[in-house]
Amino acid sequence: MATDAQRPERLEVVPGGIAAGIDWEAVYREHVGAVYRFVYSRVGNRADAEDVTATVFERALPRLQAGAATLQLRVYLYTTARTTIADFWRDRHGTTLLDEGRPVAVVGSDDESEDRDQEVERVLSVLPGNYREVLELRFLRGYSIKEAAQAMGTSAGNIKVLQLRALRRAAQEFAG
């Protein structure tokens, strides 16, 4: 799979993958949810996720219209998404993407979110307990600083310090 992702332009033809009348809009609707989730998980908010997703599909439209085979198109969409997300971080904040150098893992299944959840779970599982807890409370369950402080039996100031330390450590794990 990694090989496919690195060389999206050299994929073989899938027999029967090319329909005579290309309904690119149906193909778009089939993929837009997964691409949006992929993007959201890398920009972190709705407005930017919508902008970046729109750019991905604008860039990929000729491929959609040409009727590329499904796997080939998925690889192309995620590769394009990665490039567009990297552009976003560079243009907006002058930085690189966390996992920029790594190949995009695209599997035959339609559920990209499954891979991502596994990655997040892996990272959370290797963190120290209090790091994991503060990240779960704040970022997965949406607790305020105050609520998280109560839940963990500590001060708001401690939560603030702890969440940054936990994010820094999680970032290392994601990048590693």
């Binding site: 989730r37 930017d48 996720a49 904040h93 002058g94 690189t96 966390l98 999680a170 970032a171 990048a175």
Partner: peptide, 30 residues
Amino acid sequence: IPGGSLDDDEATMLQAAARLRGSRPDAAQP
């Protein structure tokens, strides 16, 4: 996120936060 330069350390922390936010089961539906 408010615009402006981040160093790589800060950017990766925010990207890790984004990964966490995106993994909420109810999140990230367009």
